[in-house]
Amino acid sequence: MPGGRLTQQERQQIALGLADGLAYAEIARRLDRPTSTVTREVMRNGGPTAYRADLAHRATERRAHRRRQAAPRGPEAPPQAYGRDPEAVRAYEETLTTVFMQSGTPQMMARVMACLTISDAGSLTASELVQRLQVSPASVSKAIAFLESQELVRRERDERRRERYVVDDEVMYQAMMSSARATAQVAETARQGVGVLGPGTPAGARLENTARFLDYVSESLVRAADQAREILHTKAETASDGTATPRSDRG
């Protein structure tokens, strides 16, 4: 299986595969590439309906140019914490960004969310996000505003009075609760339609069934999130032999 960056010819094959309605896995198989490589390539360059090989290739060249400009001067880049492989971390960050985008998060917001998620502190300042992502302060500000509206990040001041953007242990719980509230709202709207269209009509019955289904899903999601919430506060505790065991910080 070949490694390295995608070539322009490979990007053209991806575009042709998308036009033919092929799944990412099939396109990847034909290119002898990992499915994640194709998925990430498509999602970061407009998605399956807007992907263009030439535009994607130019965008990749621009990103590579920005990274070269941003690279620290000197013989080597500063080491990653805990001895991590910088290239592996960068590749994982791109993969995580792609997953967030597939779930419906816009690209810039997904990049900020991924960057915060993989930081050990779980928080970064605006200037740190700008430096790491090589984007404008306005882009970061817009992304943070969106993520705040979804209750995925929050702001706090550090000891130097700098504003930090935080994604903490509760972020997935809050995301699930937000999803449950949105689902419940759809259920309520469907139930309102029953009164308008008539409970004895086919359309009214359809909306009533939809409302009952969504009520059940919303309530089940809330119960499951509450029951599993403790898991989010489990920390790794290193034993004397170097192995890590889960330990809850709550209770």
Rank of each mutant, 00 (worst) to 15 (best):
A110N: 02
E87C: 00
Q9A: 14
S141P: 00
V140L: 04
T117M: 06
D215A: 04
S119N: 12
L147T: 09
R5Q: 11
E26A: 11
A77D: 13
E230P: 01
R67D: 11
A211W: 00
M113R: 14
G4H: 07
L232I: 02
Q9T: 13
V196T: 12
G74L: 08
T60A: 15
S136C: 07
E87F: 10
V38G: 03
E148K: 15
S248T: 14
P78E: 09
S136P: 01
A56N: 02
Q131M: 12
A187S: 12
M108E: 09
D215I: 04
A110F: 00
A228L: 14
A25P: 00
A110C: 04
R52N: 09
F100G: 00
A187N: 06
D241H: 11
T95A: 14
S139V: 01
M43K: 07
R58H: 06
H65T: 15
L18W: 05
R62V: 14
Y216P: 00
Y92Q: 12
L55F: 01
A23R: 15
L96P: 00
T49W: 06
T125M: 08
L197D: 04
A126R: 15
R40E: 14
M113C: 09
E93D: 11
L214G: 02
R84F: 10
T183C: 10
Y51W: 03
G46Q: 06
P75G: 06
I231Q: 13
I14Y: 01
Q131E: 15
Q12I: 12
V130F: 04
T238G: 03
G74I: 08
R29V: 01
G122C: 06
G104M: 01
Q131G: 10
S220E: 13
A25K: 13
S136Q: 13
E87W: 10
T245R: 15
R155I: 07
S103G: 08
G21R: 07
V99G: 03
R62F: 09
G47Y: 07
L22C: 04
A110L: 02
R68W: 12
E237G: 05
R212V: 11
S240Q: 15
M177V: 11
A77C: 05
Q131C: 08
